[in-house]
Computed example of a mutant assay.
Amino acid sequence: MGPDPRAIADALHDWARDTDWVEWVELGGSLGRGAGDALSDVDAGIGVTDLADPDPRTGQTLDAVEAFAPVAAVLEQRLGGLLHLVCVYEDGRQLSLVLFDAAARAGLAPQSTAVLDKTGRLTEPLDPEHWTPTEAELREWAFLAWIALGDAARHRHRDHPWRALRSLTDARDHLWKLHAARLGLTYPAFGAVTVENADAPPPPGIAATHPTGLGRTEIHTALTALAELLDPHTGPDLHGLAAAIRPRLDLLA
């Protein structure tokens, strides 16, 4: 199965411990939940004292993670204003590291482990309710799911099957989020990932939303199944939207 990814987490801990401007290290993902294995990625965050943008310590962090093991490739990207470093090592292990301003955190995120906490910022757990979607967010997910259903039907009707499949997948992803929220799971915005991590039941009949091919009939069957699963998550104020979208599905009948 290859080298243990926990060795990368240990190397990150040791470097951060000896680096005075790193205040804490948080380990998330499957390793943070205590459910990791040899195939797990190392999903982590570090708290940098008075992090600036740009900040020369970003380069120092990159130099450090590249020294943990022989490197295959590295990517730097921005995620909502945060710097995300992805380092893939030659042996297949992967480190996904987010740099935070240390003071921006006032507790430990759910399903995460504090592997280093020099100043006590991660002592108290953060309230999981922080990640509970609002009614407006739930409405948005349902709204976007119906729009994506209509888009999928339109694309397939125009003989654009791959665009149809993409829209169908988008609609299903929103359904997974709505399902996770209804189950009361933490991080419902991660949809199927959250449901499977919790060993929770999937939406009944979800397999029927996966088309067996890209033909009109197959896509229509999948879209119809998905619309039925979406109905219970569709509030009265969106019944008109659903009624407006359903005729598009019938284009493929």
Rank of each mutant, 00 (worst) to 15 (best):
A181C: 05
L230M: 10
L226C: 03
G150H: 01
A64Y: 10
K177V: 04
G191F: 05
P128Y: 12
T212S: 13
L168F: 03
A208T: 12
H160T: 10
L122R: 04
D10E: 15
L223Q: 08
T58L: 14
G120N: 10
D117A: 06
E140T: 11
D101L: 05
H84T: 01
D250R: 13
G29L: 04
A102N: 01
P5T: 06
W24P: 06
T113E: 12
I245E: 07
P70K: 02
P203I: 06
T212E: 14
A73W: 06
P125D: 01
W21Q: 03
D10W: 09
L75K: 10
L99R: 01
D159P: 03
E26C: 09
P125H: 00
L108S: 06
E135I: 08
H130A: 14
D250E: 15
L185M: 09
P70I: 00
L99W: 03
A114P: 04
H233L: 08
R156N: 09
T134Q: 11
Y187I: 09
Q77F: 05
S30E: 03
E23G: 10
D199H: 14
D4W: 03
G36D: 08
L168A: 08
G235F: 05
G215A: 02
W162L: 13
L75F: 00
F143A: 14
P70F: 10
L83Y: 02
T234P: 08
H155E: 11
R17P: 09
L122D: 05
L79H: 12
T212H: 12
P3I: 00
R172D: 03
D199S: 11
E26D: 09
A102K: 00
D170S: 15
R216S: 15
H13W: 13
E26S: 13
D170M: 13
A164D: 05
S112L: 05
T123S: 12
A106R: 14
R154A: 14
R248G: 09
L62H: 03
V71A: 00
H130L: 13
V42R: 03
S30L: 07
L251S: 03
R121F: 09
E129K: 12
G80A: 07
V115Y: 14
T134C: 08
Y89R: 04
L27W: 10
P161S: 10
Y89M: 06
A243V: 01
P211S: 06
L138C: 14
P201Y: 09
A52V: 05
A200K: 08
D250H: 15
H84C: 09
C87N: 02
A198S: 12
V74S: 02
E124F: 07
I147V: 15
P5R: 02
L138H: 11
D250P: 01
L82Y: 08
P232S: 01
A152V: 04
F190P: 04
K177Q: 09
L82F: 06
W146R: 05
L122C: 06
E23C: 08
D43Q: 11
L83P: 02
D170A: 15
G240H: 07
S40R: 05
A171N: 00
R93Q: 07
R17F: 10
D159F: 10
A104E: 12
D63C: 00
V98L: 15
D4I: 00
A69F: 12
D4F: 04
A64N: 02
G205R: 03
A152T: 01
V193D: 11
L31Q: 08
D20I: 13
L175W: 01
F68C: 07
D117P: 05
A52C: 07
R78Q: 11
E137T: 10
A114F: 07
V48Y: 11
V74P: 02
A180I: 01
